[in-house]
Design a protein around this nucleic acid. Structure first.
Lengths: 187, 187
DNA sequence: GCTCTTATAAACCGATCGGTCTAGTGTGGC
DNA sequence: GCCACACTAGACCGATCGGTTTATAAGAGC
């Protein structure tokens, strides 16, 4: 047969969405095959290590995306411009709160223990990159660290509450509040 | 045999901890029996509806606890005192960030669809109760709503990041930041 | 001391789990 | 044309899943 040909990058994207919807434990192989239309043969061809390898590659993929689109700009580009873009990127990536943070979700249950390093590194770098940009924009070290932590905490919390309440507005309102708070220190 | 006698309230507490650690899908019946030392016989005696009934009763139990210890005081008692106690209650209940919010965790994956009503009601009441207390303490409606939303968002986000980073300090720092922000509007 | 109720233990069930394996199909290099 | 290889379909495996059933032990009421 071999009807539709997938590349590994397609597989990563498709499987990622299933993990996002169902969680690590909730995403069974039959769920994954059903929702992605990828057969078990294809999945184990791309990911010989099974679910664990899928999840690891998906997280690495997400991390790489954030590094390119958000962390490196924060670390290297004009800080004010990079911070301004961060709000847009965040809103787009999480689809105004309708899409959750897979890495944050993995952190909550014992799935965390499997991927503790990757989870920690992702959030650590986000906070560090934002704090660094703030410092380069002449915010004091203490204030920069507090603001960066507050921003990432707020984003994660807003993602939880957006889904919990089924409220499309809360993510945007939180992002706006955080942005104002940050910009108040920049002027 | 019938060695140790459990009451249903004991069972709820024990099983709740397993759901908290493993998530709804990750908590299998054999996991639950192993970690709680309750046999399947006991579990199905207390919860004929199986996992779903367990989770529903656990959430009702958590909700009732919050209503008594936090929401009703916010709604009925002296607002400043109730808000001050809310920070303490929150820090104690979540053990300074070492314990996650089960209801928030359920909100992230498709487990939410099973319990959407209970999840929504819990967070809605928390935000409403806090906003109400702020208004009774003479904060304007708009500010009260924004502050209440920000507080609950911040708490949930801090719980995620505390586990993600394995950082014992972030929950306390976030709580302190929120408390100062709220108190700045009360004076 | 008998019975009725509550609580427990564990064997057992069909379904589904994660994962393996075989038998392909289609494509590019030569 | 044909071979090597990337990819796919799905039957199949033992283990574990959520859930049921049977048997029985310990009080409580009388």
């Amino acid at each position: 047969m071999t009807r539709t040909i997938f590349e590994k990058s397609d597989a990563i994207t498709l499987v990622a969405e299933v993990f996002r919807e169902l969680g690590y434990e909730g995403a069974s192989m039959s769920n994954i095959t059903a929702r992605t239309r990828l057969s078990k043969g294809s999945l184990y061809h791309f990911f010989p290590g099974g679910k664990e390898e899928m999840a690891a590659e998906i997280m690495a993929n997400i991390d790489a995306w954030f590094v390119n689109e958000m962390f490196k700009p924060l670390e290297e580009d004009d800080p004010r411009a990079a911070i301004a873009r961060m709000w847009e990127t965040t809103d787009t990536y999480f689809r105004s709160g309708r899409r959750i943070c897979l890495i944050g979700a993995f952190a909550l249950d014992e799935t965390r223990d499997r991927f503790a390093g990757a989870i920690q590194a992702y959030f650590y770098r986000w906070i560090e990159a934002l704090a660094g940009a703030l410092m380069r924009a002449c915010v004091t070290t203490a204030e920069a660290n507090a603001l960066a932590e507050e921003a990432v905490v707020g984003i994660q919390g807003a993602l939880t509450l957006a889904r919990a309440l089924g409220d499309d507005g809360i993510f945007g309102r939180t992002l706006q509040r955080l942005r104002e708070r940050v910009e108040a220190r920049l002027t």
